[in-house]
Structures are given as C-alpha cells and as structure tokens.
Amino acid sequence: MRNLFAALMVLFLWIGILPAAPAIADTHLIPCQESAAFKERMQNAPQNYYFDQPYKSYSSNLLCGADGLPHLQLRFDRAIDVIIPFGIFFYVTGFIGWSGRSYLIGSKRSSKPEELEIFVDIPLAIRSFTQGLLWPLLAFKELTTGELTAKKEELSVSPR
C-alpha cells in the first residue's frame, strides 16, 4: 500500500512540476487568420450574424489545420477543464450507485426484502443517501478490509 501511495505522489508531483510542453499538434496548426483554407471557408460562408461572428472569433483566437477548420489543443495546462467535470460526474455516479447498493443491502436484512424493493422504505432510503455522500471513503474502507470484493472461493465457475 505504501508503494502505491509513493508512486501516486511521484506521478502527481511530476505532472505538477513539469512545465506545460507544447502539444505535438502545434507543428501542424497555424493561426486561423493566416490559413488560406480557413479564409476560403469564411468567404464561401453565408453572410449573416450566425456565420460572421464565429468566424471572426475563430480567426483571432484559434489554430486551424490544413483543412481550414479550427482545432482545439490538448495541453497539460488545460487539463483542469477536463478533470473538474469528470470528477463531478464520477462523484455523482458513485453516489447514485453506492446509495442503491446500500439500500439493497439494507433491504436484504429486513423480514420482507422483496417488498422493500417495490415499496420504498423512507428511513432506509435516507440512511442510504447519507452513506452515499461519503461513498469514496466507504469504498476505500471496504476495499482495504476485503468487504467490497468477493473471495475466490465464493466465485462460481462454469462447468464447461
């Protein structure tokens, strides 16, 4: 466990300390205002607000490829734009999954588990949602204690 933690720390420090290197695609991209293919696309586009405004913005702010289309660069300094939404998505989906799992485990302990799957037990659901808010900590605890994964002897094997 210590080796995994040390490796993760080295990786995070390495990513954080390294200067943002230019993307490989930078060599193939030029500013849109200098691209002949982009200028041709801009001249052939209909003359109205919905085409003029984006083209003006693209020409001054983005890089274009040989096809004359604007391209976005993938760089380490812009990684936060992907990490934050992914983190939120991952936390919310984990919350939903953990809450449902917690509710089903709690319902199995009752005298009529099938009935609790049809008719929601509100106190149990609230308790499950509360546990779901802390799902990363609970998942780590169950993973380290062995509760989260099944033992090899408990797995069924196909007779084929």
Rank of each mutant, 00 (worst) to 15 (best):
V10D: 01
R109H: 11
G132F: 00
D67C: 08
E153C: 11
L124E: 09
H71Q: 14
L62G: 00
M1L: 12
A25Q: 10
F86L: 10
C64E: 02
Y50P: 00
F129S: 04
I24C: 09
R75V: 13
W98T: 06
L124D: 02
Y55L: 12
N3S: 15
A25T: 06
S60C: 12
G87Q: 11
S60M: 09
L155W: 03
D67I: 08
S99Q: 03
H28V: 02
I84L: 15
G16I: 01
A37S: 15
G146K: 05
F140I: 12
I122Y: 13
E115Y: 08
L134P: 00
K151L: 13
A23I: 00
S102R: 03
A37C: 08
C32T: 06
S158F: 10
G16K: 03
L148N: 07
L116T: 02
R101C: 03
D26W: 09
K152W: 12
L137A: 14
L11E: 13
G68L: 07
P31F: 05
F5L: 15
S107I: 00
R78W: 13
Q73V: 14
H71M: 08
E154Y: 05
P85G: 06
I80P: 03
T144S: 11
E34C: 08
L13E: 10
A125W: 04
Q43S: 14
Q53P: 04
F12G: 04
G100I: 01
I30Y: 02
T144G: 04
P22T: 04
K39H: 07
N3G: 11
S57T: 10
G106C: 02
N48V: 05
L133R: 05
L133D: 01
M9E: 04
F129I: 07
W98N: 03
A150D: 09
D81L: 13
Y103G: 01
L13S: 14
K141H: 07
I126N: 05
A139E: 01
Y91A: 11
G100L: 10
T144P: 00
L138G: 01
S110G: 11
Y58C: 02
T130D: 06
F129W: 07
C64L: 00
R127T: 10
N3P: 06
I122P: 04
F76G: 14
G94W: 01
W98P: 00
S158L: 09
M9Y: 02
F5H: 01
C32K: 03
V10Y: 01
L155A: 14
G16R: 06
A6Y: 04
I15N: 08
H28F: 11
A6T: 06
A139K: 00
L116C: 05
K108C: 05
C64H: 04
M9G: 01
L18M: 15
